[in-house]
Amino acid sequence: MPAFSKTRIAPTPSGFLHLGNAFSFILTAAMARLHGASILLRVDDLDKERCRQAYLDDLFDTLLFLDIPWDEGPRSPKDVYDRFSQHLRLDQYETVLSQLHQAGFLFPCACSRSDLANAGLNSGCTGKCLEKTAQAAAWKIADSPETIEILSYPSRFSTYPFPTAMKHLVVKKKDGFPSYHLASVVDDVFFGVDLIVRGADLWESSLAQLHLSSLLPTTRAFAHATFLHHPLLTEDGQKLSKSAGHNPIRQLRQTALHRKEIYQQASRFFGLEAEATNLREFTDLLDPTRFASL
C-alpha cells in the first residue's frame, strides 16, 4: 500500500454544503487515515462575490457534525480571514503568473463566453477580442499538449488525450485575480499535498492543472501527486450543486439526522461491504481500488 504525506479538503464557500460534499469529505479523511497522511483544510475563497460568511460557517459546522478531523489549516471562520485566506497568498500567485508571462507561456484574451459560442468555440480565443480593450483581458496559456500523463491511485501512470475544453486555460481572470486552476496548483505545491481526492467531474481540471504545473520548475512537484477521482452523487442524473441547493447538510441536521446515517449512506454509495457508522469504521471497511474510476 502506498504511503502519502498529506491530502486536503478544499471546499469553496459558495453555497451550503450538500450530501455529495459530505461523502467526499468522509472519503478524503478515510484515505488519509488509511495511508498515514495528514489532512490540510484549504478554503478556496478567492471569489469574493460567491463566498459568503454563512457558507463559511456552514463548512465548519458540517466538519464538526461529521466528526471530520484535520491537522493543518484554519480552526474557525475567523482563522480563515486572519491566517489562511487565499487573499493572503496573492503575492505567491502573482509571482507564478509573472514567471509564466516572462517565459512566454501566456497571451491576453478579452473574449466573453458568448463571443466564443458565436464563433463555434468552447475554449480558446476568437482572435478578434483585443479589438476591444486589453484592460479587460484575461490571461490564458498559449499552447496545450496533445496528451498528458497523470499518476492515478494507487500508483499507476497513464497517458490521456488533453481535453479540448481545457485548451487555452485561463490563469488570470478579467478581474485581475488568479484563476481557480492556478491558485489550486500553487497551493497544493506550497502545502506539500501529494494525494488529491476529488470528484470525477474534476477529471479534466486535473489534466489541465498538470499541464499548467509542468511549465515552471517551481510548480512541477504537482505532477508527483497521486489522484483519486471518486464517483459523484447525483439527483435525477445530474450532479449535486451547492448553488442549486441540492440536499444541504444544514437542513439534514435540522431534521435530527444523525451523522451515523450519513456514514451509512456513504458506505452504500462507495460500495463498502458493510455499513459504517463513523469514520473509524468507514476507514476499516474502505477498499478504494474498488471504485477508483480513472
Results as ranks from 00 to 15, higher is better:
Phe270Ile: 03
Gly245Gln: 08
Asp57His: 13
Leu56Asp: 04
Gly124Leu: 05
Gln99Cys: 08
Gly124Ile: 08
Leu285Arg: 03
Arg220Glu: 06
Asp47Ser: 06
Leu233Pro: 01
Leu285Thr: 10
Leu106Pro: 01
Cys129Val: 11
Ala221Asn: 11
Gly127Ser: 12
Ser98Glu: 15
Phe16Met: 02
Gln264Phe: 09
Glu146Met: 06
Glu146Gly: 13
Val193Gly: 09
Asp45Asn: 10
Ser213Asn: 08
Leu27Gln: 08
Leu59Tyr: 02
Tyr160Asp: 04
Ala225Cys: 05
Leu17Arg: 02
Ile249Met: 03
Asp236Leu: 06
Pro161Trp: 05
Pro74Lys: 15
Pro248Val: 00
Pro11Trp: 08
Ser214Cys: 02
Pro161Ala: 09
Ser214Ala: 10
Trp70Ile: 05
Met1Ile: 14
Leu56Lys: 10
Leu195Asp: 07
Pro74Leu: 14
Asp284His: 13
Ala165Glu: 09
Arg8Ala: 08
Thr255Gln: 15
Glu72Lys: 12
Leu215Asp: 01
Arg259Thr: 07
Ile148Leu: 00
Phe107Gln: 08
Lys239His: 02
Asp79Ser: 15
Ser5Glu: 10
Asp194Phe: 11
Val186Tyr: 12
Asp143Glu: 14
Ser184Asn: 15
Glu235Arg: 00
Asp287Gln: 14
Arg156Leu: 06
Asp175Ala: 09
Ala183Thr: 02
Ala22Pro: 03
Cys129Thr: 12
Ser76Phe: 11
Ser243Arg: 14
Cys125Asn: 13
His258Ala: 15
Ala244Tyr: 01
Ser293Leu: 14
Cys129Met: 10
